[in-house]
Design a protein around this nucleic acid. Structure first.
Lengths: 113, 113
DNA sequence: TATCAGAATGACGCTGCAGTTATATACCTC
DNA sequence: GAGGTATATAACTGCAGCGTCATTCTGATA
């Protein structure tokens, strides 16, 4: 009665959720979007995002811990770049879904689910 | 100096992040996964997920508000089903990415980014 | 109408986490 | 080594959101 028929262990759900959680913050998306055009230093990201330096560093640390970005030291500074290109595929799907939904709503208009 | 070269308004980032946030909870993923095999009542979901009834209802409400599921009343009960199939495309990509990463780690082993 | 099952809602506590301030560390230049 | 720039980290604060308990609402059935 309380069993889960389909096999989908809680552990895995946890991991998937965790990955989505990484993408569920606007500032992190902003950073990732910045990195899409290529490797960037922390300072560059700070300037381009408008976030504080500690904030950017922390986000980068989080993203790196979970394997979404990689880090390269060059002289005085740290250069970050995308390590998991799948992010953009995912984002594209989500963007498309929003676009589709938007068009549907503005054309049909009304009728809630 | 503080400008964002690439055009990606904060509003949109907020919306995308919001959508990812919906998917960043294990219980919600569990519910969505249950719905993947077809329309389900709240009680069924309660039984299959092991969550409390108010909890399931609340998650369903959230998912519905954001257009991920739809609701149909039948007699005494409410039947929920998937309204945004893109979810599963997204999940598949994430799962694949995890699998790939897992294989790489276990074969190469070591060297952090 | 009374009663019961299914579902939704409100209020509350707790935890996680984004952001800030202050400080520490690393590296380069003089 | 001194001083400056780039980055990381620690401690703290505030808030969003998950889960629970209690309650309410809705529809079916007697």
């Amino acid at each position: 009665m309380t069993e889960n028929n389909d096999v989908m262990p809680d552990e895995m759900l946890e991991l998937i959720a965790q990955r989505f959680r990484l993408l569920s913050d606007p500032m992190r998306l902003k950073i990732l979007h910045q990195l899409q055009s290529g490797e960037k230093s922390v300072t560059e990201l700070v300037n381009n995002t408008g976030a504080s330096q500690p904030n950017v560093s922390k986000h980068l640390s989080t993203l790196r811990t979970h394997g979404l970005v990689k880090r390269r030291q060059q002289g005085n500074m740290a250069l970050f770049s995308i390590a998991a290109p799948f992010i953009f595929d995912v984002c594209e799907i989500v963007c498309d879904s929003m676009k589709t939904e938007w068009e549907q709503r503005s054309s049909l208009l009304g009728q809630p689910n």
